[in-house]
């Protein structure tokens, strides 16, 4: 390696080093801005009067401040509250059950005295290499499981994933086997060992994959698009999708709130709905970010 490093004059070195740091700061700052600006456009669009939007379009700062869109949105809060209810229900139930199943499975598969663990792990892993895709799931779920319009269709398919299993397994492998052995000698059964000895040790792992699961459930919209026809069972993200892309959804809000469709502040309404649907994530983001960083770092190291 030393052969490749040619001595250079100190001054030239320091100038190009400063240039490098300047570029690094600028590029990273620019990227951060690009990631932030769309959020600002949406928020400011939601607070801008419809008239201004029609003539001048969206902009980064709200020009003619108006709360009209939010007033209409909350005039008939039924639709939004229902959608919030569905999203919260699906997220809580799905995450709780999924977390339990994933944790106990990865614990069992990390036990070195469990003989068929590598074969069973492969049975799970294989689904990431080969699967039937959307068509097969769709036919199976609608024609054989008859889960159309049931909230379980939003919960069950995403409940167990190999990605979470791999992350959790590395948390389990960090637990020394001697703890399990000594609990066994004390006469504890397998379930007793898991629930009162192991689970408390896996708290940070459970927080990590629990958050991944919750995020997945909260952001899921396309299961609802495929399987949910009943408008009362729309989750928040799918409701947002409908408001953004389909005129019928706008007409429904109009009918419920008693406003003529052509007087609806469509553009600002779309943006305010986007704010309402994404708000909770942005509020918790600063507190949960580090768990995701940890999970991604662990998940990227091959299992």
């Amino acid at each position: 390696m030393a052969n490749n490093i040619k001595p250079q004059s100190k001054i030239k070195n320091s100038v190009s080093t400063s240039a490098f740091y300047a570029i690094a700061y600028i590029v990273v700052g620019f990227m951060a801005l690009i990631c932030l600006i769309p959020f600002i456009i949406v928020v400011s669009g939601s607070f801008t009067s419809e008239n201004y939007l029609l003539f001048h379009g969206y902009s980064i700062l709200p020009k003619e401040f108006s709360l009209e869109a939010y007033k209409i949105l909350f005039k008939v809060p039924g639709t939004i509250i229902k959608a919030y209810g569905v999203s919260i229900y699906v997220t809580v139930v799905g995450t709780a059950l999924g977390l339990m199943i994933t944790t106990i499975t990865s614990y069992a598969l990390s036990r070195r005295d469990f003989k068929y663990r590598s074969k069973i792990s492969f049975f799970f892993y294989f689904t990431t290499l080969f699967n039937g895709g959307m068509l097969c799931s769709y036919i199976f779920i609608t024609r054989y499981l008859h889960l159309r319009d049931s909230l379980w269709v939003l919960i069950l398919p995403g409940m167990f994933s190999v990605f979470h299993l791999l992350i959790m397994r590395s948390f389990c492998q960090a637990v020394p086997f001697e703890i399990i052995e000594s609990a066994k000698i004390d006469g504890a059964g397998e379930y007793r060992i898991f629930f009162s000895v192991i689970m408390p040790l896996l708290k940070s792992g459970m927080a990590t994959i629990g958050l991944f699961m919750a995020l997945g459930y909260w952001n899921n919209w396309y299961q609802a698009m495929l399987y949910i026809n009943d408008q009362d069972k729309y989750p928040l993200q799918y409701l947002l999708y409908n408001m953004l892309q389909k005129t019928e959804a706008m007409q429904r809000v109009a009918a419920l709130s008693g406003i003529v469709v052509k007087d609806m502040p469509k553009n600002s309404l779309k943006m305010s709905m986007a704010v309402v649907a994404t708000g909770p994530i942005l509020l918790v983001y600063p507190f949960v970010q580090r768990y995701f960083v940890k999970g991604i770092t662990i998940g990227s190291v091959k299992g």
Partner: peptide, 9 residues
């Protein structure tokens, strides 16, 4: 952290 729906927006 955001859904593709919001990216669509």
């Amino acid at each position: 952290f955001i859904s593709w729906v919001l990216v669509g927006a």
